[in-house]
C-alpha cells in the first residue's frame, strides 16, 4: 500500500513528474532563447511562474461554470500523472501490463478534450474560437500519431511499452527501422502539446489565449502544470518506443542514456518551435490528411511486411 503511494506521489509519479515538467519548461525556454539571440530565463523561472500563478486572483466571467472550470485542469493533471506511471523511466516502471500503450494514449487525449470543454464553458468569444480550433486540430494530427505509434508495437509484437522496450534490446533501436514513424510521432506530439508551429488554438494574435483566455490564478497554474507533464510523458513515450536502450543492467548508465535521449528530443522540439511559422488551421487539416496519414499508413505497411 505504501509502495503504491510512493509510486503514485513521489516516483515515478507526482513529485518526480512535476520536477521534470518544470525542468522541461526551463530547458525549452532556454533553448528557444539561444536560438533567438536572447539570454533566456534562469533555472528557477518555471517554478517561480507556478508559485506566482497560484497566488493570483482567480476570476471567471459571469455565467461561467465555476465547478467545471476547476475540475477540468485537475482532471487533465490526474490523467497525465497516471499516464506517467506506466511509461518506463530509465527502464523502470512499477506497473506494466499488456495493452498499457493503448491506455496511455487514451489518457493523453484527456487534456485535449478538457481543453476543448474549457473553451466552451468560459463564455468569452476567444475561448469558444480557441476550443473549436483545438478540436479541429485534434482530428488532423491524432490519426497519423496513433498509426505511427502502433509501428513499434507491431514490430515488437507486444502492446505493452515495457515489452516494446525489451524488444529493442534484441532488435535494435526502432528508430532505425522506422525513421518516418519517428518523425510522424514527433509531429503528432507537437500537435498534441499545441506547441509552435501547431499552436493554432492559442495563437496569440488571432484568438488572444484560446480556450484559456479567461482562466487565471490557480486554475491556470494547474493547466500549465498539466501541459508540462503531458509534454514530459509524451517525450518519455517516444523515447521508449523509438529510441530504447534504457533497460540496462547498470542503472546509472541507463539513467544517463535516458537523460541524453531526453535532451535530444527536447532539442528537436525546440528547434521546430524556433524555425517554423504557425500554420493556418485549413493548411494543417490539409497537411494532416493529405500527407501525414498516407505516410503513416505506408510506414505501418512496411513494418508489417518486415515483421512477416
Amino acid at each position: 500500500m505504501f509502495e503504491a503511494l510512493f509510486y503514485l506521489l513521489i516516483f515515478p509519479g507526482g513529485f518526480f513528474l512535476v520536477l521534470v515538467g518544470l525542468g522541461f519548461e526551463w530547458l525549452d525556454r532556454k533553448l528557444l532563447a539561444l536560438f533567438q539571440r536572447r539570454v533566456g530565463p534562469p533555472w528557477y523561472q518555471p517554478l517561480a511562474d507556478l508559485i506566482k500563478l497560484f497566488s493570483k486572483e482567480d476570476l471567471l466571467p459571469k455565467g461561467g461554470n465555476e465547478l467545471v472550470a476547476t475540475l477540468l485542469p485537475l482532471i487533465s493533471l490526474c490523467a497525465v500523472l497516471v499516464a506517467g506511471l506506466y511509461v518506463p523511466i530509465a527502464g523502470f516502471t512499477p506497473y506494466s501490463f499488456e495493452g498499457d500503450l493503448i491506455v496511455i494514449l487514451f489518457l493523453m487525449s484527456v487534456p485535449t478534450l478538457a481543453y476543448y470543454l474549457a473553451g466552451i464553458i468560459s463564455i468569452g468569444i476567444y475561448s469558444i474560437l480557441g476550443g473549436g480550433r483545438s478540436l479541429l486540430q485534434y482530428f488532423s494530427y491524432e490519426v497519423p500519431f496513433l498509426i505511427a505509434l502502433s509501428g513499434p508495437a507491431v514490430l515488437a509484437r507486444s502492446w505493452s511499452i515495457e515489452g516494446i522496450l525489451t524488444a529493442q534490446f534484441t532488435l535494435g533501436s526502432f528508430v532505425l527501422f522506422q525513421p518516418l514513424g519517428f518523425i510522424l510521432a514527433l509531429v503528432g506530439l507537437i500537435g498534441k502539446l499545441k506547441r509552435d508551429p501547431l499552436d493554432i488554438p492559442s495563437a496569440k494574435s488571432e484568438v488572444v489565449g484560446g480556450s484559456l483566455t479567461e482562466f487565471s490564478g490557480g486554475k491556470l497554474g494547474f493547466w500549465h502544470l498539466a501541459m508540462n507533464i503531458q509534454a514530459v510523458v509524451g517525450i518519455f513515450l517516444i523515447i521508449n518506443l523509438f529510441l530504447g536502450w534504457t533497460k540496462l543492467a547498470n542503472p546509472f548508465v541507463a539513467i544517463l542514456v535516458f537523460f541524453l535521449e531526453f535532451l535530444v528530443i527536447v532539442g528537436m522540439l525546440s528547434s521546430a518551435s524556433a524555425i517554423f511559422a504557425r500554420l493556418r488551421i485549413d493548411q494543417l487539416a490539409g497537411l494532416g490528411w493529405r500527407i501525414l496519414v498516407p505516410l503513416s499508413l505506408a510506414q505501418i505497411l512496411f513494418v508489417i511486411l518486415m515483421g512477416v
Binding site: L32, F35, Q36, R37, R38, D196, P197, D199, A203, S205, A274, I275, F276, A277, R278, L279
Partner: peptide, 13 residues
C-alpha cells in the same frame, strides 16, 4: 509581421 505569423525567431532577430 513575423510575430503575428508565428515566426518569433525572426521577430527577435
Amino acid at each position: 509581421l513575423a510575430k503575428h505569423v508565428g515566426l518569433d525567431t525572426i521577430f527577435m532577430h
